[in-house]
């Protein structure tokens, strides 16, 4: 039997325009879903409050240390960022696909004229917009407070720190989306996301310390292993911006500065970009083959 292709009278845009359109629609839906998630809102509020609180503390101590208000705040925020932002991003990512699969919504979405790549990338972009928006609020409120009370001296490293934080958030979100694509249930996805968070924030450092002692790792090996962790990459990049030196990080920091010099920033950016691209590509590969049931 032969069958010529049929089209509707008002066919929607195809090609790149159609792709961009579907991406935008799915992203907006995901953004609205994220903003109505209590878990996400609580995380964002906690981060915002901590950022503003730290700004007050930094302003109170201004003049005591050699750092400006922005520098002190950024230094103080670094630990919060490394703790809170990965948790926010991983759990937000873990909620993107698994929950909708469980509810049957994923099948319904895929039954519409959209491709799987459009659905997954749209979900990532929507969740990323929500995440970056909440970071903008936290950093923005802090920056306004500092500029109002203490001037804009030292704002450049603070802005760079915000940029690296966004990269960290996007990379952890990509890992969360991969977890969500792989897990069959949303509860399992969130559980794995929390485990990954614990591993990256605590266990990796402990493992590195133990590995250094047990295997007598050389300093370049220690640096390579440390920098493979996106949290460490973000930390090094931020600290380099704040102090222009990584001697505070010990031998690995000194090695990094002496060996890579000006290229270190590029290496750290590449590591963070890799943590966005690789998990996202893996998610796409799995999502395009896996049953949405």
């Amino acid at each position: 039997m032969t069958s010529a292709a049929m089209t509707l009278r008002s066919s929607p845009p195809t090609g790149l325009r159609g792709f961009a359109r579907s991406l935008r629609v799915v992203a907006i839906k995901e953004l609205v879903d994220a903003l109505s998630s209590r878990w996400f809102l609580v995380n964002a509020a906690v981060f915002g409050l901590l950022a503003v609180g730290l700004s007050f503390v930094s302003l109170a101590g201004a003049g005591v240390s050699g750092l400006s208000g922005f520098g002190r705040t950024a230094a103080g925020m670094l630990n919060i960022v490394l703790l809170v932002v990965p948790l926010m991003a991983l759990t937000a990512g873990a909620a993107t696909v698994a929950g909708e699969r469980e509810r049957g919504m994923l099948v319904y979405m895929l039954a519409q004229p959209v491709s799987r790549a459009e659905v997954l990338l749209g979900k990532y972009l929507g969740a990323a917009a929500a995440l970056v928006g909440s970071l903008c609020l936290g950093f923005g409120a802090s920056a306004i407070l500092m500029a109002w009370r203490g001037g804009t001296d030292g704002i450049q490293p603070f802005v760079a720190f915000f940029f690296f934080t966004v990269l960290l958030a996007l990379s952890m979100l990509a890992v969360g989306v991969l977890i969500s694509v792989l897990a069959r249930r949303s509860g399992v996805a969130v559980g794995i996301a929390v485990f990954v968070w614990l591993t990256l924030t605590l266990l990796t450092d402990l493992g590195l310390m133990a590995g250094t002692l047990a295997f007598r790792l050389r300093v370049e090996e220690l640096f390579s292993l440390a920098v493979a962790n996106p949290l460490q990459a973000c930390k090094m990049a931020a600290m380099q911006q704040m102090h222009a030196s990584l001697d505070i990080l010990g031998p690995a920091g000194l090695y990094a500065m002496q060996t890579h010099g000006e290229h270190l920033r590029v290496i750290l950016l590449a590591v963070l970009a890799g943590w966005i691209v690789v998990p996202l590509a893996a998610s796409l590969a799995v999502f395009s083959r896996r049953s949405p049931l």
Binding site: A5, T7, L8, S11, E100, G104, M105, V107, Q112, S115
Partner: peptide, 25 residues
């Protein structure tokens, strides 16, 4: 409508409306 659903899924689904057993929204 002549569109292979695996190769030209979007075009095929443009021609289809779907009513599931239960709305999953």
């Amino acid at each position: 409508g002549g569109h292979d659903v695996l190769r030209r899924g979007k075009s095929a689904r443009h021609l289809l409306g779907y009513v599931p057993q239960e709305l999953a929204f």
